[in-house]
Design a protein around this nucleic acid. Structure first.
Length: 460
RNA sequence: CGGGGCAUAGCGCAGUCUGGUAGCGCACCUGGUUUGGGACCAGGGGGUCGCAAGUUCGAAUCUUGCUGCCCCGACCA
């Protein structure tokens, strides 16, 4: 009965992602005490120091285990919010054929940012900087009728744009992970609804990551109108100058009760009626006329998402036609919606850190709890830690256990650096009195509790 | 792509001007003392000084070329 044996073997494996390997003594977390010279901004420095990434070429990074965990968390939040809004996940390749791009006319117009490659047959290929052509191609082959609309297809895939000057770590890398969604509708009114769904979905996704993202009017290119927004996180190190009504900053995102089938216009107008623009779209006169002086906020921001409607820009040249109710073929109305997944790590750190290190919002933290054994080798302390580790892990709490034979100070500062939301500190002195210490990274608040109370607090 | 800078041990740097065969701090290894906020003592390992050519008795150091990385600008999720 080989199947049974296999099942039994599988049952003995630890649950996904959580095992004894999450002991720091056999994990892979190369932290740095000093700042690498090449890192200029705080998020880049902290990501290097916290052992999250290492640069392999200009603007190209390897994701070390800690960084990889955060990347996956962010990716998952984006995925859940896309799915909730009715988008459908697929996965397109990173390498594309030049032919498609010739059809859309972008092969020549895209310029040197596009990384062009030849295969062994000297066929022209490219490493995709985006996927409008490819998704349109996939769509046009299969969808012929308005009855199959609307559809919104997305993937989360690595992109490459050969930036002239990559900088700021993962905020402006050449290779980056991006979620890009593409909507297909019969007419512009329907396309507007698709756009609105993404708008709401973005507000929710960023909010779940602990970010205050502000939608700002963006350039719509040849189409015009109000159908393009950038989602901006305010940060000193942001690349663009932004202007908006202060009210927008703390406006809460739509909650779980949001109904994507209902009319979303009021929710969106609540935001778009207030002034918000990046420097390219900024109109100083309008800003002063529309926004009371006290509410005028001019700051710097990081673009973490961009949504836009572009109508038939690709469907027409690529021949993505569907039959309407009248039986006549029309090009589909399309929109595309990007989120810079890898860039978000930098953005979150820019928005959430202090002089000691990163402060992860719980939803994207690589682990929820850092368990600190203050005296590895001490039988009682080891036993207490092992028990806490097992209990928490069993309850589904992600724990990174620092069981190394290091001094207390090194463990404290290391944990502060990597920024896990909670530090559970266990030492012989406390155990003698039946207590452990729980420190909240964000506030620095510490409290002494019984192990049971600490577990309850972390599990609850 | 234009302007500027840097390249010496895993990280941060000195040594280059004035050529004589490589050093400091952190990290790492061994032993000991320590142990509640990045310890101390002693010993030790690790470098074709980015690459190539040239000048010279001799090059990390001078010359030329190349490469990589960083900063400022134009461009972008």
């Amino acid at each position: 009965m080989p199947t049974c044996r296999a099942a039994a073997a599988r049952a003995r494996l630890p649950p996904t992602g959580q095992s004894e390997l999450m002991r720091l003594s056999n994990y892979f977390l190369p932290t740095l005490k000093e700042n690498p010279a090449e890192a200029q901004i705080v998020s880049h420095r902290l990501m290097l120091r916290a052992g999250m990434i290492r640069q392999t070429s200009a603007g190209i990074y390897a994701w070390l285990p800690l960084g990889h965990r955060v990347l996956k968390k962010i990716e998952q939040i984006v995925r859940e919010e896309m799915d909730r809004a009715g988008a459908i996940e697929l996965l397109m390749p990173t390498l594309q054929s030049a032919d498609l791009w010739r059809q859309s006319g972008r092969y020549d117009s895209y310029g040197k940012e596009m990384l062009r490659i030849q295969d062994r047959h000297e066929r022209e290929m490219l490493y995709g900087p985006t996927n409008e052509e490819m998704i349109t191609d996939i769509f046009r082959r299969e969808v012929k009728s308005y009855r199959d609309l609307p559809r919104n297809l997305y993937h989360i895939q690595w992109k490459f744009r050969d930036e002239i000057r990559p900088r700021f770590g993962v905020m402006r890398g050449r290779e980056f992970l991006m979620k890009d969604a593409y909507s297909f509708d019969l007419d512009e009114a329907a396309a507007r609804r698709s756009y609105q769904k993404m708008f709401i979905s973005y507000l929710r996704a960023f909010s779940r990551m602990g970010l205050k993202a502000i939608p700002m009017a963006a350039d719509t290119g040849p189409i015009g109108g109000d159908m393009s927004h950038e989602f901006i996180i305010l940060a000193e190190t942001g690349e663009s100058e932004v202007f908006c009504d202060r009210t927008l900053v703390d406006m809460p995102a739509p909650g779980d009760e949001v109904d994507y089938d209902a009319d979303l216009t009021p929710v969106i107008e609540q935001r778009t009626s207030l002034y918000a623009a990046t420097d390219e779209k900024h109109d100083a006169a309008k800003f002063e006329a529309d926004v009371p002086a006290d509410n005028r906020l001019s700051a710097r921001g990081i673009e973490v998402g961009h949504i836009f409607f572009f109508g038939t820009k690709y469907s027409e040249p690529l021949g993505a036609l569907v039959a309407g109710p009248d039986g006549k073929d029309v090009p589909v109305q399309m929109g595309s919606y990007g989120i810079g997944v890898s860039r978000l790590l930098g953005a979150i750190i820019e928005a959430s850190h202090d002089e000691d290190g990163i402060i992860w919002p719980e939803s994207v933290a690589p682990f929820k709890v850092g368990l600190i054994n203050l005296k590895s080798g001490d039988a009682d302390t080891d036993a207490a830690c092992a028990k806490l580790y097992a209990t928490l892990t069993k309850a589904g709490v992600e724990v990174l256990y620092d069981d190394r034979d290091e001094r207390a100070g090194a463990k404290f500062s290391g944990m502060d650096l990597i920024g896990l939301p909670w530090q559970l500190v266990v030492g012989p002195r406390g155990l003698k009195n039946g207590v452990v210490e729980l420190k909240e990274r964000a506030t620095g608040n510490r409290e002494e509790l019984s192990t049971e109370a600490a577990v309850k607090k972390l599990v609850g």
